[in-house]
Design a protein around this nucleic acid. Sequence first.
DNA 1: TACCGCAGAGAAAGCCCTTTCCCGCAGGGA
DNA 2: TCCCTGCGGGAAAGGGCTTTCTCTGCGGTA
Lengths: 357, 357
Amino acid sequence: MATLSDVARRAGVSPATASRVINGSSKPVTDELRERVLAAVAELQYVPNAHAQLLARSHRSAVGVIVHDVSDPYFAEITRGLQRVATDQGRLLMICNSYRDPDRELEYVELLRGHQVAALILAGSGYHDDTFTRQLNEKLAAYEATGGRVAVIGRHEHSGDAVMPDNRAGGYLAGQELCELGHRAIGVVAGPRILTTTTDRLAGLRQALAEQGLDLPERRIRYAEFDRDGGAEATARLLDADPELTAIAALNDSMAIGALATLRARSLAVPQRVSVLGFDDMPIARDVTPALTTIRLPLVDMGVRAMSLVLGVEAPAPRVEVLPAELVRRDTAGPAPQAVQGTAGAAPSPRRGAAGS
Amino acid sequence: MATLSDVARRAGVSPATASRVINGSSKPVTDELRERVLAAVAELQYVPNAHAQLLARSHRSAVGVIVHDVSDPYFAEITRGLQRVATDQGRLLMICNSYRDPDRELEYVELLRGHQVAALILAGSGYHDDTFTRQLNEKLAAYEATGGRVAVIGRHEHSGDAVMPDNRAGGYLAGQELCELGHRAIGVVAGPRILTTTTDRLAGLRQALAEQGLDLPERRIRYAEFDRDGGAEATARLLDADPELTAIAALNDSMAIGALATLRARSLAVPQRVSVLGFDDMPIARDVTPALTTIRLPLVDMGVRAMSLVLGVEAPAPRVEVLPAELVRRDTAGPAPQAVQGTAGAAPSPRRGAAGS
DNA sequence: TACCGCAGAGAAAGCCCTTTCCCGCAGGGA
DNA sequence: TCCCTGCGGGAAAGGGCTTTCTCTGCGGTA
């Protein structure tokens, strides 16, 4: 690889001058030398060594992002929001997948710190694990102590800036909708028990049911991986244990899609026989058939806000932005079969055939 | 940020010793000093500066990857394959999204070269654009001249190692299937004209039709973005121009899903009234309803092979691995309505209700 | 004519590590 | 007892770049 001195030698100038030309420094250089340098760069196909540059400038510009999995639509959307702001500000993003492994998450914090990122964003559910939480907080605190900025998306762990989707309210919305549709036998297809997202959404759901005098016993909850296959499997177990279920609340859309697959395989009509509710409103939700009724979270916006927090002015006190969840009625949730409509108010009927939003 | 000398000073040793302890060098260090160093590291929360390390070791270990968009399932699957091999070999991946912008692609080649990656993998369709192709090849050649390894996935541009999905054969398979089902009025929902993937798949399709004496006029082809909305829009235009169409071949699954959305909105039954064929077999294909009949490409395997090529021994001659496409029959393709079954052989009936692959 | 100031270029000091090379010392063999 | 060997540790030389500081030479003013 050609180095800067190679270029300088070839152009017959000092490395200092070559550097100034290449980086468009404010220091003036005569046109003749400038052209000689540029010619040498082209001839040698010179590309500056990024590590040497980053080492020499103390300027920290990249931003580190830790997500569970970028190819998961939930994080893909958040990342889109992060990217948008980062690109606007000319920042490079380093994105790491933790695949929901706490240890890997810890490692990545170190790795990104070692790469001198200007800021760190952690997106995705936190864990019910005190040891881990303490370790993570220590690492984040150490990073912040050296001037690093940190923001989290959807996690309770960290005491600093945070963007929080209102998971609990979303769960409540889901429970409420199902109750209003007259469902009494409701099963929950939940993500891993150790994730705070799971318990938050579950708590909201439980509260909504409780307000209608309904209990949510553990046998009506199945915990599985937060993906399509986890949802399919959990739904199967749920139905095996309790064939009378008339509604299934999935704690994210991927699981809901798995649930639909299982229901289809068992020839249980959705929503006539069983209603299904998703969570997140990822893009594919409107394209499955029937289109998925779900709880929308402003995913892109969450990314935008988190990045803005972290690149904007530092606040004296930690800022927490709570973003609201919203019910999106599509075609997978309908009135409970032979239901005794117990609640006051009109049970909204599902809008069949509406493919949009 | 604490530096290595800070650690060394605190531990009362030389930076050399500290470095040896921290990196587990082969050179022996007495237990006492080792512990003092480790203690200092913990107290100072020391994390080595990655740029300095990378600069000091000449060892290039990371691998650069340029894809159109990781969050697109097509590339997510390929990336999964790339990751698998890279992780096994302890390599870090730097993944860049070009968002199908040739200029950005060129920039990323430079960027990754600057970051001293040991190898470069370009995945995703090439462009029908001679200027770009020449520029890219120049840059890749320059990189290879300095010892860099390069492999491409699904692109013709580069003369070196390549993993090629058999797009043309896949297109042929699609055309053949549709013909055998008795379709005569076939519309094509195609990706951008400038992409070689589009033209390759189209060429195979056209050949299959030609063998049945069928023409594929331009008015039966609509070019749009390679995504869901592009597919929906192209399908609408196709149907507007030619309401008698009985089959739509989409050139990827995302577009096929868009096509299904449009057909649903227009109450055209799939597959009774219109058949739909996808391409790629991305995971969601089996979960839409009806489940998508499509052409499968071994996406993960493509990633695995490309990474293996690039990390394995260098071959004297460029290697090209062509991976076969395969028809996956699900539920969106059926016999043409009122079709005159013109071809010999039994037209396979779609297997309804089979959700699995 | 003598001096000042400034523009434009180069010398050199880092940035933070790794690693080679060298040194001192202790133990073992002659 | 002396020398050689080898082990554990440190000094110092990079690695490739940026940037401050210094120097040279020129034009302009008194």
